[in-house]
Every structure is written in structure tokens, then in C-alpha cells.
Simulated assay, not measured.
Amino acid sequence: MTARSVTEPSWLTVSRACQMLGVDASTLRLWTDAGRIRVFRTPGGHRRYREEDLTVFLRSQQQKPPGRLADVIGHRGARLIPGTSRRRIREQQWYADLDPKAADEMRLTCRTLMDALSTYLSGGRGQRAALAAGEEAGRALGLQVAALRLSPAEATRTFLFFKGSITQPVFSRLPLPSERRVRSIRHIDLFLDRVLVQMMAVYEQTG
């Protein structure tokens, strides 16, 4: 690809691609590393995306047949948590104590975590990268929780509350037989348990 080609209207920068997909840069990077979206590089090493590729990707997300957990979560993972659960999270005392900047950082970390979970549940060769992204988000949460000066019990309880906010809607919204629904929950448990281990490891090191 030449330097001239990246200036054509069909080529998008990272920020423009994020706007088109409605996600942040970390999620776009996760999807790219997992092979879900093609990326090209300029001679200077900057990432560029074809608008046509993103259009096809968005269309494929809309046309997927229902029935898989990743489809219920959607291509923006945070959709899995219903509004009532999000409100309950905001009502927690530890959340009320957050300053606006810390709250924004935690929301971004949780969004990245949910996007990684969605990619992990999609299967395929992107699972390893998604799990690594989830563990990285767990380490970021460990630093953020440590800054709140929560006790280990409070930190664990906070994460389990978040975990329950994810798993409970799956039972009510996933159109699968009971045995497959349970298997899906196990996949979520495996992923989030790895995240929790990383979160608490960083929390203990910081404390």
C-alpha cells in the first residue's frame, strides 16, 4: 500500500474507524489482533482500515443467527449488562466515592473487559488474544480497586457483584436449552475467574 492510497476516501484512520464501529481504540485493536477485522499500515507504521471492510463487518454482526452467547452479548459487549444492573452498580457506595476521572477510567476498563469476553466467546483463533486482553483489564482493575482502599473482602465482593450482573441476564436472555446455557455460563466463569486472579494479584502487590 502506497502513501497515496491511504489518503483515498475509502481508507479510515483508527479514530474514524472507531467512530464508524461505535467502539474505543482498545476494542478495535482487540478485534484486529483476533483477525476479525483486516488492518493495513502506512509506510510510517500507522494503522488504516478500509471502509468497505468495516461495512461488511457491521453487516455480518447484524445478520448472525441468534443462539450463541456471543450473539446475545453483541459486537459491543457492554450491552449484556441490563440497565437495572448498571444502575445497581452506580448505587454501590464504592462507586459513589469515585471521582469523575476514576469513574471514567473504570468504565473504560469494564467496557474493554466486556468486549474481550464477547470475542472470547466467539471462539476461533481470537480466543487467546481475548483472554490476554481480559487479564490485562483485570490488572488495570486491580490498580483501580487498590486506589479505592477497599479491603480484600470488599474488592472480591465488588468483582463478584459485577460477575453476577453478567451471568444472571444470560439465564434469562439466552435462547438455548438448559444444558447449553449452563455450558455457556461455565465459559464465562472460566474467563472471569482468570480476570479476578489477575485483579487480586495486582491489588495485593499494590497494597
Rank of each mutant, 00 (worst) to 15 (best):
R4K: 07
T27C: 11
R90Y: 04
G207F: 10
F57V: 08
Q62L: 14
E51R: 15
Q19S: 12
V6M: 10
A153D: 04
P175G: 14
V56F: 04
D71L: 05
V56A: 11
Q168A: 15
T167S: 15
I37V: 11
G83R: 05
L143C: 05
G83D: 12
V39D: 06
G126R: 05
I185Q: 07
V197H: 12
F40C: 14
L176Q: 09
D99G: 02
R68Q: 12
C18E: 05
E204V: 14
G124D: 12
A17G: 01
R4D: 15
G74H: 08
R183D: 10
Q63S: 13
R149F: 03
A137W: 01
L12I: 03
S60D: 15
W31C: 00
Y203G: 02
R79A: 08
D24Y: 07
V145R: 00
T112Q: 14
L21N: 05
W94N: 02
L80Q: 06
H75G: 00
S151R: 13
P175W: 05
T2M: 06
P152H: 11
F191N: 06
L141Y: 06
G138F: 05
Q92V: 02
A116T: 08
Y120V: 04
D53G: 04
R86Q: 04
Q63R: 14
V195T: 08
T55S: 03
Q63M: 14
L117G: 10
G74A: 04
L192Y: 02
Q168K: 14
A201F: 05
S178M: 15
K101N: 09
Q127C: 08
G22L: 03
A116S: 11
P169L: 00
R128N: 11
E179P: 06
T13W: 02
S118E: 10
Y49R: 03
I81L: 13
R90Q: 15
I185A: 10
M1H: 03
L117R: 07
L190H: 15
F191W: 04
Q92T: 11
T112C: 12
R29N: 02
I188R: 06
Q63H: 10
G74S: 02
I188G: 10
A140R: 10
I89W: 13
T2Y: 03
I185T: 11
L58W: 05
R38F: 08
T112G: 14
R29F: 09
A155G: 06
G124R: 01
S184W: 03
D97H: 13
Q62W: 11
E91A: 15
E135T: 00
E179R: 05
R181Y: 01
G77K: 01
A25H: 15
V23Y: 10
Q62N: 13
A102P: 02
L174I: 01
P65H: 08
Q62F: 11
L121P: 03
L121N: 04
I185K: 05
R48Q: 12
